[in-house]
Design a protein around this nucleic acid. Structure first.
Lengths: 353, 353
DNA sequence: TTGAAAGCGCTACCAC
DNA sequence: GTGGTAGCGCTTTCAA
């Protein structure tokens, strides 16, 4: 059933029915009620394409995820991010359009996304440090929010990010305070902004604790189980092996733990591991003390926030670039209870530059 | 730039320009060339909504993922599935619309999806054994392909599934052949079809090897690290603990391995683990022998296949329900080399019922 | 408070 | 080969 038929059935004009259904004030109360009842009765659902054509808005948001042989496959945390974003979209009546893109030809791709017109704005995933997409999107005038930041870009754009630097600084600090002197980092590809920041936090903590950096204890690559395994295996074979590992991903950590086990070492006794993507981690202190890193729910909160931000940007383009830095929970203690939700550290507006 | 403007610029009618751009045969070769050049020059991209309104097709596919507090969060393998599906969509010029839905009110929801008209078909994720959505969708006449099956449903519908039963039968068999008599299964929620089938395969293998089923070695729940940890902890405290574990998910396996380690046992020596979602698993035989379970790439292949299937169903609705069962790689051996891609076991058409 | 009619940008039918 | 024109289903002036 479409609007025309519904109107005919009610002996009303399309105009009135449309107005009644879209909450315009000038409709007679009784008329509106009649229309609403009939709409429900006939399961009337407006055609989104037609509505979009008429209003100029598509009521959907694009999520653009770069993939290529050189980058990682779709990151597992993406599911959590989307879950959070989706909440906002459902409430606001928006749809989510997912676009996986091989890198290369960004110019044409993003222009097409805009001109095709089936999204009102996009969320940009996996920014690199010098991500060229930001300038491009600013130029195209398509509203967007970046999930993460691009450290080498000076332009002012909207983003939502986890405090990666802070999380890794603290995690490294924990290990140092427990007496570890040889702390390894198995990171993601370091042209990715999140990985750069994590490394930065790691280095800062080493320096703060008077530990010197050993390049042999640093590894970066696609965050696979294989990377974790190979890295740990090689490092543990060093004359002066690490006694603790920081891992940037759950996947990497799985391989890393396997290598530790294969080396005949025991987690939490001989060697400690803290994983970023993981819900639980280990510290060396005789018996295992988990560090609770609530990354999954934090990422979900980030998704929610990014979506809210973008919707606001679309509704009120003048509200200027928005930023939000979320603090990931990182709790020393028992591994019980529900996962706490990340709290925003700060959110602020800023005038357009 | 839109069609009208482009046509005016070229001193041609919209009709001709449209025909030239859409590959209709009756266009003069020279004209077509002129049009194509101009289109590229002005970065002309047809408006998808207008095109959709005119053609009646939206050129996008919906992926519907149920979520609720009672079910698991978005499964990590979903990213791989989407990656595969996306390849097909890009080639065919389709977009991917992602819809996360809380369960309840399926009736209204799926009807809305159809009537809203911004997808031409959907992929149904996470089917339960008696999933009510299948009858509903069949009734609604919206083309769909299920990722997985619904064992309790007798209707004939299109699906793509991994051979979960076979994979768990084989995995259990490996362990039994290595001499394990007490093999535990930590499964997903067993009203989910994949979990039911995995359990079924596990039970079949036990029976084939003359091992008896011990309910104390069976656990099912949301596939979290906590489930894995709690399950393994309790089982290892039994008077007659298991010497091997099968885990339905990477997340569960992480917790499970932690419990093993906390119990002072050593993986691959005291106890063996095979994880489904994982790339590597362990067998007990003096030294560690990994089982390479190429689930990630297998799932990606499944996504690709499901998408191809749905596109075909949309193009030719008469081609009848299609089915495809994919075999997950499960290789005893070294953990090196690239991940092999799943081969289809069988694909066949079938007349409409 | 209601309705007629003009688009939104495109395709597709029919005439030339 | 090419062009005029009537929709696709909705919103939104403008009049009444």
């Amino acid at each position: 059933m479409n609007l025309k038929e519904l109107a005919k059935h009610l002996n009303l004009s399309q105009t009135t029915v449309s107005r009644a259904l879209n909450g315009y004030p000038e409709v007679n109360k009784a008329t509106r009620l009649r229309v609403e009842v009939a709409a429900r009765e006939f399961n009337y659902t407006p055609n989104a394409r037609a509505k979009g054509l008429a209003t100029g808005r598509s009521m959907s948001i694009g999520h653009v995820i770069p993939t290529s042989s050189k980058r990682e496959m779709v990151n597992p945390v993406f599911g959590d991010f989307i879950t959070g974003a989706s909440e906002a979209y459902v409430q606001a009546g928006y749809d989510l359009v997912l676009t996986l893109v091989e890198d290369g030809d960004e110019e044409r791709l993003y222009r097409n996304i805009r001109d095709k017109g089936n999204v009102d704005g996009i969320i940009v995933h996996s920014p690199q440090m010098d991500d060229s997409r930001i300038a491009l999107l600013l130029d195209l005038g398509l509203p967007f929010v970046v999930h993460g930041r691009a450290s080498d870009i000076t332009a002012n754009y909207s983003w939502v990010d986890m405090n990666n630097r802070g999380a890794f600084r603290r995690a490294t600090g924990f290990l140092a305070e427990l007496g570890h002197r040889r702390i390894a980092l198995v990171n993601g590809l370091e042209h990715m902004d999140f990985a750069y920041r994590r490394r930065d936090g790691y280095l800062a903590a080493l320096e703060a604790h008077g530990l010197k950096v050993d390049p042999a204890l640093l590894r970066a690559g696609e965050m696979t189980e294989m990377l974790g395994h190979a890295s740990a295996q090689e490092m543990l074979a060093l004359p002066d092996p690490p006694t603790a590992f920081l891992s940037s991903s759950m996947m990497t950590a799985i391989g890393l733990r396997r290598a530790i086990q294969e080396a005949g070492l025991q987690m939490g006794r001989d060697v400690s591991v803290i994983t970023h993507d993981d819900e639980l981690a280990y510290l060396k202190n005789g018996q295992t003390v988990p560090i609770f890193t609530a990354t999954r729910s934090s990422v979900r909160a980030a998704g929610r926030r990014a979506a809210d931000m973008l919707l606001r940007l679309i509704a009120d383009p003048g509200c200027g670039p928005l930023h939000s830095l979320l603090e990931a929970e990182l709790i020393l203690g028992e591994s019980t209870g529900p996962v706490p939700v990340a709290r925003p550290e700060k959110t602020y507006r800023q005038g357009q530059t």
